[in-house]
Simulated scan of single mutants.
Amino acid sequence: MRVLIAPDKFAGTLSAVEAAEAIAAGWRQQAPDDEVVRVPMSDGGPGFVDVLQAALGGELAALTVTGPLGESTPATLLLVGDTAYVESSQACGLDLIEAPNREPERASTYGVGELIVAAVEAGAKRIVIGLGGSGTNDAGAGMLAALGATAEPQGVLQQGGSALQQLTSIDVTPARERLEGIELLAASDVDNPLLGLRGATNIFGPQKGVEAERIPPLDAALENLATLVDRQLADSKGAGAAGGLGYALMLVGASRVPGIETIIDAVKLAEHAKTVDLVLTGEGGFDYQSASGKVVSGVAKVAGDAIRPCVVLAGQVLVGAREMRVMGVQSAYSLVDAVGKEAAMGQPAESLAALAARVARTWSRSI
């Protein structure tokens, strides 16, 4: 029997690569005669570069960029031919900020611009930027500054979203000229606009630590930027991705592409699915959001198109059988239910391997 293992990260515990290794180890332990194929996945958020490097090879360039609160932080750039892959969360990710220090109002995307500049200087003609997992809400103003955009008052673009209320003028022409002749793709499955009730601040701000009373003025600050540059573009699908980073990328010519589909195409998941008998995927929390452009739903669709059963291994399973079937998932198994929350968090790889072995007893035809 041949099994495809294509999980997302288990947020806070395992990367997608580590999760795939753990599931494979557990499966082999129970069904050693089965052949397992590991294809770690990402939807454009954390793990984007690692997943692509595992599938495509290429050259990893180690860099030091400016983190969301101005600190130096390590990041990597993946170069495959004349294409560069950038993971925005490496420069502005929520996981870079300790919980007590989370202030999305002053966090900046400047480091994302530094990564893009590095890609340009490395000779890239096509740059794919994975969006997701950000701890920022500055409409990509910091990124624009790193690319050469100017504004009045000087320095305001690097000071986070709230500071944009002070903005009186902005010129993004230097940033556009810096990227002239380069194809930019913003990989994200978020289709929210920049502003309003469905915008970056209202929908994602609270998840990053924006307090309720700060939401209206922060949204107004982002609207001030949009009004000075291109208010119509702020209504575009995906402009609100990564705290508005999607909007800034569109300002400099980027096209939005679905994050999960970008990965599915890059790792040739559909081709792999046709050669196996069973597809396994997983993530930390299998819930209602999993149906909205996340890895689990994307993998399940590929499995369905190949007429292969899809099974989910998750930290927690928070959907019922009906919702699973709608997503194309035959069955789902919870790590917390199997080993308890303490073991799931304290020994995630071992626990996930144990769960995979248990699933193999049910699903492997070799036993």
Rank of each mutant, 00 (worst) to 15 (best):
L195D: 04
D277P: 03
Q330Y: 01
V359C: 11
V312L: 11
V339N: 12
V317W: 07
E323P: 01
A122V: 07
L233V: 02
L313G: 07
R325Q: 15
D265F: 02
L78Q: 06
L69A: 12
V172N: 05
L144F: 10
L94V: 14
L78N: 05
H272M: 01
V295M: 07
T168Q: 15
V128Q: 06
Q207F: 05
L197G: 13
E21H: 13
Q166H: 13
N101V: 00
L318C: 05
E152G: 14
A291E: 06
V279R: 06
V359N: 02
I182G: 02
R38S: 10
L228V: 01
D277A: 04
G132S: 06
T362M: 12
L131K: 03
L179R: 01
Q159T: 05
R231F: 03
P40G: 03
G259Q: 11
L195E: 07
R2W: 11
P309M: 04
V39W: 01
G328M: 08
Q207V: 07
A55L: 09
G123Q: 02
V296K: 00
L185Y: 12
L278R: 14
K294F: 08
Q289N: 08
G155F: 02
A270V: 08
L94K: 11
I264Y: 02
S331R: 14
D171R: 09
A186R: 03
G67M: 01
A141Q: 08
S366I: 14
Y333T: 11
L184D: 05
I260S: 00
E283T: 03
V252A: 07
N202V: 15
L251P: 03
A151M: 11
Y247V: 06
A149E: 02
P40V: 01
D33K: 15
Y288T: 14
L280S: 07
V117C: 05
L60T: 09
R365L: 12
G243P: 06
V279D: 06
E152K: 15
M1H: 13
A254L: 07
L179W: 09
A300L: 09
D235P: 00
N192D: 01
V17G: 02
A22W: 09
G161S: 10
E350N: 08
G304C: 01
V128W: 07
L77E: 05
G130L: 04
G284Y: 10
D230H: 06
A6M: 05
G298N: 04
N192G: 12
P7T: 08
E183C: 00
A20F: 10
L63D: 04
P258E: 01
E114Y: 09
P7Y: 11
I23W: 03
V120S: 00
N101H: 15
L14M: 15
D305T: 15
A11C: 10
R256T: 00
A349V: 04
T136I: 04
V257R: 12
L78F: 13
P216A: 12
E223M: 08
L94N: 10
G133N: 03
E152R: 14
S351T: 06
V336T: 14
A356H: 10
